[in-house]
């Protein structure tokens, strides 16, 4: 069993109004050192696979077919060490 985390973010070229609004709020808090905010999604997957490569390719399928919309979003997959099945 592998655990994968998938980070889904809006493509850089695309305006993120949610991130922008949050950035304004952070500035109101006085956190002016923060110069940019982008908001995305984090998806965690438990994957039954024998190897890390297999787990990655399954996660990749999940992203291209459903989790991310390639028109506006990018994704990044991280596969974590094999977990003991509890």
């Amino acid at each position: 069993m592998f655990k994968a985390t998938v980070n889904i973010t809006l493509r850089d070229s695309i305006l993120d109004p949610q991130g922008k609004a949050t950035h304004h709020a952070l500035q109101n808090l006085g956190l002016n050192q923060i110069s940019k905010v982008r908001i995305g999604k984090l998806v965690e997957l438990n994957i039954d696979a024998d190897t890390e490569e297999e787990a990655r390719s399954i996660a990749e399928d999940a992203c291209t077919q459903l989790l991310a919309n390639a028109v506006v979003e990018d994704y990044e997959i991280t596969i974590h060490k094999k977990q003991t099945v509890s």
Partner: peptide, 16 residues
Amino acid sequence: LEANLLPGAMMHNQQL
């Protein structure tokens, strides 16, 4: 759009 029967995608309204 999600089914790829039409091109493009929908985003949150600009003013949220």
